[in-house]
């Protein structure tokens, strides 16, 4: 019988612990708000994982994400390698001298780990473990001990929680500080940080910047938090709604609520005279 449930009740950490201790073999599938991920295990070791659509997890794409292939190279290889398995493609690239075996192993391993670490942040999602189901032989599998994955995942989860607390809202915008000492050319930034810097603009929300750079919520929070701490950028609070004359529809709604003696929780509708009376009363206390 398949092991199934919701991450809300049984977290990724607990699932991986179970698979590790019981030395299970099979594939764990997770669905969460239209996102999906799969992790495969052999005798309690993680051997394969991917998230999202199949084409995003093509070997050419993984090598591009790891900086081993340029975007154009990855696109051309992916188009030409249709119907070729990852293993066959890997052999081909090694034979032609485009890449080494070590590059492929490291890139695939990193992709698997990145996928699993992202899953640690999923608080909810339907999961199902199919015992003995494994990826097709054409996939490149690399055995990884789960103990270290669980420890690193838990550490990242904690970091993620802190970042989530520091930057709860990604729909806010950033701008460069006016401080004269905040000169970007004197600061060492990673490639990803530079990409983010290039999008910093009062019109771009943090979420938009993340999408444009294909960064996860965790990654963009970490980068923006670092830049905020360094004083490079500052947050622009969303403008408070400009006071406007109430629309016809809303005044009608208010009239209906008043007729029924209901307080509108969205709009206290307090008159100026009421506030003036409150001021007089508190002054006189």
């Amino acid at each position: 019988m398949a092991l199934k449930g919701n991450l809300r009740d049984f977290s990724t950490t607990q699932l991986l612990n179970l698979i590790n201790l019981a030395r299970k073999t099979g594939t764990l599938s997770i669905q969460n708000n239209g996102n999906s991920a799969q992790m495969s295990f052999r005798e309690g070791k993680l051997i394969y994982a991917f998230m999202g659509p199949e084409e995003d997890n093509h070997l050419a794409q993984i090598l591009h994400n790891a900086g081993k292939l340029s975007e154009d190279q990855a696109r051309i290889i992916q188009a030409r390698a249709k119907g070729t398995s990852d293993k066959q493609l890997g052999h081909m690239l090694i034979q032609r001298g485009h890449i080494t075996q070590s590059d492929i192993i490291q890139s695939v391993r990193q992709n698997v780990l990145d996928t699993v670490y992202k899953l640690f942040t999923w608080a909810e999602g339907l999961f199902r473990f199919e015992a003995n189901a494994l990826p097709s032989p054409g996939h490149i599998t690399i055995p990884i001990d789960l103990e270290s994955v669980i420890m690193e995942g838990s550490r990242r989860l904690k970091e993620w929680e802190i970042l989530q607390e520091e930057l709860p809202n990604l729909d806010i915008c950033l701008r460069f500080t006016d401080r004269p000492d905040a000169r970007l050319q004197n600061i060492n930034l990673t490639v990803e940080e530079w990409r983010v810097v290039s999008f910093v603009n009062p019109r771009n929300s943090i979420r938009q910047i993340a999408r444009a750079n294909n960064l996860s919520d965790f990654e963009i929070r970490r980068i923006v938090y670092g830049m905020l701490q360094a004083g490079l950028v500052e947050i622009i609070r969303p403008p408070r709604p400009t006071p406007q004359a109430p629309a016809r529809q809303s005044s009608t709604r208010q009239e209906i609520l008043q007729e029924q003696g209901i307080d509108d929780p969205q709009s206290p509708a307090v008159k100026r005279s009421v506030v003036v009376r409150l001021i007089d009363r508190i002054r006189g206390l």
């Binding site: 400009t242 006071p243 008159k271 100026r272 001021i279």
Partner: peptide, 18 residues
């Protein structure tokens, strides 16, 4: 509390002006 009420008053005045 008075400073908060003054801020509320300013907000109401802005709405009235609009």
């Amino acid at each position: 509390l008075l400073e908060l009420l003054y801020s509320i008053l300013e907000e109401i005045d802005k709405v009235e002006k609009a």
